[in-house]
Computed example of a mutant assay.
Amino acid sequence: MENSSSDDDSDTLSEGSDLQLYSEHEFSSDTDSDDDTQQTESSMEPDSQQTEATDDDFWSYDLHPVDIAPFTEQETNRYAEQEMTRKGSRDSIWYPTTSPEMKAFFGLNIIMGINQLPRIDMYWSENPFVGNEGFKKCMTRTRFEKLLQYLHINDNQAQAPAGSPSYDRLHKIRPLIDMTRGNFQKFYKPGKCQSIDEGMIRYKGHHYAQQYTPGKPIKRGLKIWMRCEPSGYTNDYRVYLGKHDSMCGPSLGERVVKHLCKPLKWKGHHVFFDRYFTSIPLLQTLESYGVYGSHCIYNI
């Protein structure tokens, strides 16, 4: 597989022989730890304060009501309020959403990907050959468009200042990335054979991370580095940020493989990738950690 011209960035990073791990904003997880040794006995000992406490110190029969505040951390509602405050006027059509309604909203979006129509409003068409009765029963078109307008999954005000070490270019979708990566790794144990390659998410808007690959089926979009099963199941992934990515520059493909293979160390996995990722130092590094790399040649 050929990489796009945008991969040839001039930024460089120091290279090491180890499987590199990047900052916590670069998709670190509990499987990314550099400490591959077993926990020592001392680290497993209970806290001294806990050992001194008795059941009588902890439990009590003196029961009293506990006031539990309602859960209000819904980012779509928060963003709607922030936008109305910023504009200095109220949105007379908007009212706070709920978790069940948002689940229905996402369900409708999934159905739109299966039953595709040229325009969103056509799903609510009165024409029996065009409109979808399920959509009409679920919510009105106006409500769907309002949810789409204020859809948000992270608090903008929690973003660190630009230029600071903790600034996250993927802050707006960070909870979604963390949730999906965590679930991918939680519910499926990687098999012996793994494949590493790129994927493209079609995107026609304007974004600094947008890639252009004229020789691919999806020519413009966001690039995702992926480690997958032979069945196509995604075990892990990483969003590529172009020139702003910490792995950009020379040996980008090698760095990607090292990053995605870090959880596979000393487990005897066989990893396949094409010539863009392949290098002799990479194969030597993988073998030194019990991961067996292989250059896969195929035609698109």
Rank of each mutant, 00 (worst) to 15 (best):
Q284E: 07
S231I: 09
F273W: 06
E73Y: 12
H25W: 12
N77H: 08
K265G: 04
P190H: 03
G242D: 11
K136Y: 04
S166W: 02
E81Q: 09
S6Y: 00
Y276P: 01
R169A: 07
T40H: 06
F144N: 07
G107Y: 03
N235D: 00
D67N: 05
H25N: 14
Q39F: 01
R275M: 07
G131V: 09
R143Y: 06
E133Q: 14
R141G: 07
T51K: 15
P175L: 00
F277L: 05
A80F: 01
C228H: 04
Y212W: 00
R169M: 05
L264D: 04
D178C: 01
I111R: 14
T140P: 06
Q38P: 01
V271I: 08
S5D: 15
L63H: 02
V66T: 14
S288G: 03
L13W: 04
G191R: 07
A158N: 09
F144G: 02
S279C: 00
D178V: 02
M1C: 09
K87C: 08
G215R: 11
I120Y: 02
G163I: 08
K146T: 12
R202V: 11
Y240S: 09
P214C: 07
D55C: 12
G249L: 06
T40A: 07
T213M: 15
E81F: 02
H269Q: 08
M44V: 07
T213I: 15
W94C: 10
A80N: 08
G221K: 14
K87A: 07
M84A: 11
G215I: 06
P230L: 13
N3E: 06
S29V: 00
G113D: 10
A162S: 05
L282E: 02
